[in-house]
Write a protein that binds this DNA or RNA. Structure first.
Length: 312
DNA sequence: CATTCGTGGGA
DNA sequence: TTCCCAAGAAT
């Protein structure tokens, strides 16, 4: 059911340009695989709507699907439209965020809902540039919402797609640490001309990276393009560049912030300083973490040594 | 461009 | 148990 794709129109090749990648050979098998194996995720259902898609994208930024699912359902049940969330205190968004991690995302999602209510009549904007202007929405999320919610033609470059392209096309095990201009160019070159097909391709290539072409223990036996995969054909050479910096967590400010915020999420009434002091014994780091939370707007200090999630 | 920012589950 | 990571954004 893929629309016939036309060759990409392209400008005269600059010196040093690599040949135009052949995306057409990849679209059909990947999209057919997607039609057969895609997960039935709530934000992919027709009734999810742009707001559902947007909420899911915020939650899925660095958080696994399995942990997002229950929170997503509660969130949409409580705030079915952007204006519903915008009418709440930001602290309620932080509380409902629960243990998804990176709670600033909750604050930004609330801020985005406010902006949508104020500037876009309560509807998630349709244009990439409008989406990009919202708090918490970067290059990836803007493209994802425009593509998944509105069926537009955008290069959707998340970590899964980048890995699929790195292997299938470039022939290396892992993409660069940060998204490069070369990756964007490749993604654009591979994008089907037809918007509907491009949207499908974006979701399909992402799902392939999430389910089959995974970071570890990739399953080439289930891959619809294994026979065309440059990395596999080359004998799966190991990643040669510098090892990807593994992030430590124990003992960091992030861990302390997490503990502090956990206390405040559970509390119905403002929490005295003494209760927060109990989560970490080192006073300097503890104070720094709390100051950071306040600076980020995740915690609101009251006048008498009490703290709570932000009311405004 | 490199860092910071949570969390919990699986290998 | 330790390690690695899972649909990024902001600075």
């Amino acid at each position: 059911m893929t629309a016939p794709t036309k060759p990409m129109p392209h400008s005269p090749a600059a010196p040093g340009d690599s040949p135009e990648p052949t995306g057409d050979a990849l679209h059909s098998p990947v999209i057919a695989w997607f039609d057969a194996h895609a997960r039935d995720l709530p934000w992919r259902r027709p009734d999810a709507g742009p707001w559902g898609v947007m909420v899911s994208e915020f939650m899925l930024q660095q958080t696994p699907v399995s942990r997002v699912l229950p929170v997503y359902e509660q969130w949409l049940a409580r705030w079915p439209r952007p204006a519903d969330l915008a009418g709440e205190a930001p602290g309620e968004a932080v509380r409902a965020w629960g243990r998804l991690g990176y709670p600033r995302r909750a604050l930004r999602l609330h801020g985005a809902a406010v902006a949508i209510t104020e500037r876009h009549g309560g509807d998630v904007p349709t244009q990439h540039a409008q989406l990009l202007a919202l708090p918490g929405i970067g290059e990836y999320t803007a493209a994802a919402v425009a593509s998944f919610a509105y069926g537009q033609r955008h290069a959707v470059l998340d970590t899964n797609v980048r890995r699929v392209f790195a292997r299938a096309v470039t022939g290396v095990q892992y993409p660069p640490n940060a998204t490069t201009a070369a990756e964007r160019k490749l993604a654009r070159a591979l994008l089907p001309e037809d918007a509907r097909t491009a949207s499908r391709w974006a979701a399909a290539s992402m799902e392939l990276g999430a389910l089959v072409c995974t970071a570890k223990n990739e399953n080439c036996a289930r891959c619809p393009i294994a026979d065309r995969c440059a990395w596999r054909t080359a004998g799966k050479p190991a990643h040669d560049g510098p090892a990807r910096r593994t992030q430590t967590y124990a003992g960091t400010d992030r861990q302390v912030r997490g503990k502090l915020l956990a206390v405040l999420r559970e509390a119905v009434t403002p929490v005295p300083q003494a209760a927060l002091d109990r989560v970490w014994d080192e006073p300097v780091q503890r104070a720094r973490a709390l100051d950071g939370l306040v600076a980020d707007g995740l915690v609101e200090p009251l006048s008498d040594g009490l703290y709570r999630l932000p009311l405004t």
